[in-house]
Design a protein around this nucleic acid. Structure first.
Lengths: 138, 138
DNA sequence: CATAAACCCTATATAATTTATAGGGTTTAT
DNA sequence: ATAAACCCTATAAATTATATAGGGTTTATG
């Protein structure tokens, strides 16, 4: 399951996407709209910023804003940043690969093979769906 | 990511599948083969038993055994039992549905729609792949 | 240039979940 | 009668997720 961090990130990005005609958006406004703690959201926005997914302007009148077109931000990128691996096992993760402790021979492991399939089908969706697809949100 | 519990369960079931000509298999043997704590594994086997996925025989000479053909046990069932929902969001879970706290209108939520797709593609695999597909393991 | 608004950064606290252990109870082959 | 082996419930330890705290820095504005 996606963590709250990731969900908040998606909601915040979606909010920024919907307000991209405005110069900047305040943390406060996003937090209020979604009932998230200001400070918790701040950490998330900072992480998104460090990852180059959004920009910010300091000082009075500052705030956050998208620096890319929403269709340039795949959901997989957001999920990986906040939640880590999308794969169901470390041994099939493309971005966070680790061998499975329990497993001696990955190449002939049936579990590994199934989880590669799951990963590929999942990524096929999450790498092609972008922020643009979730601008309209519940 | 799958929890250790689920991974251990898959390994244990796979082991039982590979030894299904033998009447019963000892917890001890499975635990040793995979370097799992005897007691931790015991809890997992009990859970699998309660769910009707395997049988056991008490007393001296007892142990665990599969009561179904490996191809009758889909991986989705094992994962759901030990890990809970397969879906990435509660609002798209078939077996553990809950509305998302952040969301007011599920029907028009873009995230919801994407996650339904992911769920469906994932299930297409995990409901059709069975224990039989993971008898050979790493 | 003083001020207040707003982001920036790091550390810590709390809660929840996962992982593991403990200890005794019950059944059964020999 | 005995020892092997599963059965059951409770609790402890470790890890991760969630949230809070507190001050630092930048900048528009009057």
């Amino acid at each position: 399951m996606l963590s709250k961090k990731t969900k908040y990130a998606l909601h915040a990005l979606s909010y920024l996407g919907r307000h991209k005609d405005e110069k900047t958006v305040l943390i406060h406004d996003i937090a209020e709209e979604h009932g998230i703690s200001h400070k918790f959201l701040e950490n998330i926005l900072l992480e998104l910023k460090k990852a180059g997914m959004l920009g910010s302007k300091k000082g009075k009148g500052g705030g956050y804003y998208l620096i890319k077109d929403p269709k340039e931000i795949p959901l997989s990128k957001v999920i990986r940043l906040l939640d880590g691996p999308i794969a169901l096992l470390p041994c099939v993760s493309l971005n966070y690969y680790e061998p499975c402790a329990e497993c001696k021979n990955e190449a002939q492991c049936g579990i590994n093979k199934v989880m590669i399939q799951v990963r590929d089908e999942t990524l096929k969706i999450l790498e092609n769906k972008t922020l643009e697809d979730i601008l309209k949100i519940g």
